[in-house]
Design a protein around this nucleic acid. Sequence first.
DNA 1: TCTATTATATGAGCATGATCACAATAGAGC
DNA 2: GCTCTATTGTGATCATGCTCATATAATAGA
Lengths: 194, 194
Amino acid sequence: MRITADAKETTRRKILAAALDLFRTIGFDATTTRKIAKHADIATGTLFNYFPTKEAIVTCMVMEAQPVAAQINPDQHDTLEEALFAHAAYSMRVLKPYRRFLLPLLETTWSPLAKPAADDAGQTLRAEHLEMVERLARPFVDAQRFTPVASQMYWTLYLGVLAHWINDKSPKQEDTLALLDQSIAMFVGWLQGE
Amino acid sequence: MRITADAKETTRRKILAAALDLFRTIGFDATTTRKIAKHADIATGTLFNYFPTKEAIVTCMVMEAQPVAAQINPDQHDTLEEALFAHAAYSMRVLKPYRRFLLPLLETTWSPLAKPAADDAGQTLRAEHLEMVERLARPFVDAQRFTPVASQMYWTLYLGVLAHWINDKSPKQEDTLALLDQSIAMFVGWLQGE
DNA sequence: TCTATTATATGAGCATGATCACAATAGAGC
DNA sequence: GCTCTATTGTGATCATGCTCATATAATAGA
């Protein structure tokens, strides 16, 4: 059983490595499941023993890149804007290697609003991110203010930023940072104001 | 030539009717292009002489439902919130018959942020909606304030509302209206404030 | 009215994500 | 070692969005 478990993990890693290589080289769409399988030296069917869908491979990559807990200290910042900006910027730094093929993840993390999927990995990412946002907001706003609607609106704005980021052509992605800045300002203004 | 043009239009309508019927009955995903073609009494290939993709059929339906110009009078409202709410609510009333299968349109109207597609019909819808928003904002905020970033943020929020709407299970979709209300409040607060 | 040209319809066929019945294999019990 | 069972690998196969060479019909020209 030990050996088998190791072998499984090896295959898993081989698939992830092969997929990442191809995604980087030829993009997500041009990377067929057959190519991934061939590149990883396994049969096409085997691929789906490890990942339920092609998108799940991307989701999985991103999940493994996320460190256990975001390294933002809630007490480190003077304003909520600052804290949220640091958190978002940090998340995006982690996501950066996958920027160019993040779209499928966005579509499946977005769509759950449409298809309330089961225990999807994308959902976990979302939940973790939002939990951190809430924790960061705690010192600055009354807990009652942070309703589910607030979470939802934050997430919508965050997705909007990511969607823009995916194709941001500006040299250092400064367009995206500006958008992020404005989005957070808008959100915080609303959350604290009124 | 006259007869042919008529025949083309007839076929077009037959396709749209067949598709709408199937989408309503069995949903977007379960409606295959073959089923649409069969239901419309044409060959599968013919379908694609009229619509480039399956999603385009939905987009087309929605476009035809949109009246030439949104019937909102800019001078009719006392506050920007009111005006924007009226506009969004009106748009959603128009979209209501298609609510359940709006997802593909959202994904292609959203994705263009990712894939800056050519002259897609979905883009037109977006542009028209945003133009109206800008016109409504004119009496209330300085024109300089309504930057492209502002448009983008409005659109993101609006899409968030629509995405929630698609699966809103509350009896009269009051959850969505609440979300819309908050989203607009947030946007207007930011646009006017600071 | 007959032919030539153009526009439209057709369905076999392709690419690809995913499935599934079956084959190979590894570990457990003896 | 040897069987037996459960787990994992395999590739033929399916479903479906879409394409394309060809067939068909419709109009223009004579």
